[in-house]
């Protein structure tokens, strides 16, 4: 279905999402090619987090669809309808998508290692010793191998977020989704988390990153998407969107954050 580099790994089409009377997403189209990094920018309330959550069905859609690697997420087509999948099926699909939260959401009563082992064992049925070995490899990769036995609250924010990234990687997902991964961190801890994400980008992990870090976008993104008011205002290579924006709204936003 994919893998030839031309079809999208993530395909978002005509997505609408309403919270009561407020329409947060008003027709979003987006393609993410395999092995690329897409950075989503926009003012708060522009719908970028909702879009990210819609990709792994943490938000139900009112219209449109999301496909990952050719597979509809959260729905199945029945005639001319999209019928929501039972939760069990949705949970299975989510094991192929990694999600990193702004507030880490590590499990505080489990050690770092147990945090990483929980999903592979509980959701995929990976044998425990295998999951452990893999978890230790991942902790090595994010530079926290010595913290395996620690409880998350004893780590700094930056360390916690690196554990959260390792936890998402433990399922070997096809796509990683980052929801403002550095917004809850003290300024001096932002760099270590961005370094881990940059390292993942170099190894060809497909990623969608919602962030306010313009410098990171410029350095790492293959595509920058600017959202405002629930629509994609413009998208393209970082040099084009960040240095030569075509829309007044993009210019106004960049003027404020740069």
């Amino acid at each position: 279905m994919s893998g030839d580099g031309t079809t999208a790994m993530v395909e978002v089409r005509g997505v609408h999402k309403r919270f009561g009377r407020l329409e947060v997403l008003r027709g979003i189209d987006l393609d993410v090619r395999p092995g690329t990094v897409t950075v989503v920018l926009g003012p708060s309330g522009s719908g970028k987090s909702t879009l990210l959550r819609a990709v792994n069905h943490l938000e139900k859609l009112d219209q449109g669809y999301v496909r990952v690697d050719g597979e509809l997420i959260g729905y199945r087509r029945v005639g001319d309808k999209l019928r929501e999948l039972p939760e069990r099926e949705v949970l299975k699909q989510r094991t192929r998508l990694g999600f990193v939260f702004q507030n880490f959401n590590l499990f505080p009563h489990l050690t770092v290692l147990e945090n990483l082992v929980e999903a592979p064992v509980g959701a995929l049925g990976v044998p425990k010793d295998k999951a452990r070995a893999r978890a230790l490899e991942l902790l090595e990769r994010v530079g926290l191998a010595d913290k395996a036995a620690e409880y998350p609250r004893r780590l700094s924010g930056g360390q916690q977020q690196r554990v959260a990234i390792a936890r998402a990687l433990a399922l070997e997902p096809k796509v990683l989704l980052f929801d403002e991964p550095t917004s809850a961190l003290d300024p001096e801890l932002v760099g270590e988390v961005l370094d881990v994400i940059k390292d993942l980008a170099r190894t060809g992990t497909t990623m969608i990153v919602v962030t306010h870090e313009i410098g990171f976008a410029r350095e790492v993104a293959d595509t920058v998407v600017f959202m405002d008011g629930g629509v994609v205002v413009e998208q393209g290579a970082p040099a084009r969107v960040l240095d030569d924006p075509q829309h007044e709204r993009t210019r106004a936003f960049l003027a404020k954050v740069l």
Binding site: N56, R88, T95, L97, L106, F107
Partner: peptide, 15 residues
């Protein structure tokens, strides 16, 4: 956020 993280990791409901 704890339930959301568990759901995002695809952990089955009972677990």
């Amino acid at each position: 956020g704890q339930l959301e993280a568990a759901a995002a990791l695809g952990i089955p409901r009972f677990r």
